[in-house]
Design a protein around this nucleic acid. Sequence first.
DNA 1: TATTGTGTATTAGTAAGATATAACACTAGG
DNA 2: CCTAGTGTTATATCTTACTAATACACAATA
Lengths: 128, 128
Amino acid sequence: MKFDDKIPIYYQIKNYIYRQIITGKLVPGEKIPAVRQLAVDLTVNVNTVQRALGELISEGILESRRGLGNFVTEDQAIIDQMKHRLIIQQLHEMYMNLHNLNVTDDEIVQYLRQYIEDRRKHQDEQYS
Amino acid sequence: MKFDDKIPIYYQIKNYIYRQIITGKLVPGEKIPAVRQLAVDLTVNVNTVQRALGELISEGILESRRGLGNFVTEDQAIIDQMKHRLIIQQLHEMYMNLHNLNVTDDEIVQYLRQYIEDRRKHQDEQYS
DNA sequence: TATTGTGTATTAGTAAGATATAACACTAGG
DNA sequence: CCTAGTGTTATATCTTACTAATACACAATA
C-alpha cells in the first residue's frame, strides 16, 4: 500500500479499515485479518498496525478477543455514525480550505460540478 | 497559530502563505514579513519558517533578495496557476476519499449542498 | 498437553521534524 | 565605516513515528 508521507502511517491505516468496513469489504461481526498478516499486506510493522487497531477498538469500531482475533462491531449504528462522521469531516475540511481562499459557497459547488464533469470526460477518453 | 499535529508545520506554513497571497493579504511585489518576525507570529522556529519559504521560492511564488527580504512574485500567472492548483487539489482529495467510501458523484454534490445549507442555518441561529 | 494462531507489551534503534542557538552574508542608512 | 535589519547556514538536542526483535497471554485443537 502507498502512503502519504505527510500523514502518520497508523492514521492512514485507521482510515483504510474505515473504508473496508463502510464499503462492505468487512461486514459486522467479521474477523479482520490477523495483525501480523495486516503488517505483511500493508508492508508496515506490527506495532504500527496495532496502534491503528488500538484506536479503532477505543472507538468501538472493532472488538478485540485475545487469542481469537479482532472483529468488526455488530452494532450497525456505530458504523452508520462513523460513515456520516467521515463524510462530514471530508466536506468540512475541503469547504474550510476553499472558503479560506475566498471561494464562495456557490463557487465551491460550481467548481465541484466542473471537476466531476472533467473527470467523466477523461474517463470517456480512455474508451474512445 | 494553531497547527494540525498530523501534518508537518513547515507544510502548513506553506499553505498559510499561499492563502495570504491568494486572498490578497499579500499582493504581487510586496515584501512579506521578515523570517524572524514570521517565526514569532507563528510561534515556530526560524528554521521551520525558512524551510517553508525555501520551497515557495523554488516554486517561484516568492523571490528572495538577501539583505532586503522575501517578496511575492510579480508574475500574476504563477499566482493564478497556484490558486487553480490548490482548488483542484482540495476537490480531488475530498472526491477520492468519498468515492472510496462508495459515495456516488451525485451523492457528493448532494451532501455538499446539504452541508452548506446546514452551515447557513447554524449561522442564522447566531443572529436570532 | 503440546502446538499453532492469535492479540499484547517491551526494549532498543533509526529517521524526520522541530527547536535553540549561533554564526555568516548582504543591504541600506546614519 | 558602523550598525541595524534582513536572508542563509550550521550544530546540537529533543520528540514522535516507525521499525525490529522478542517475549508474554490466551484460545482452539490435534
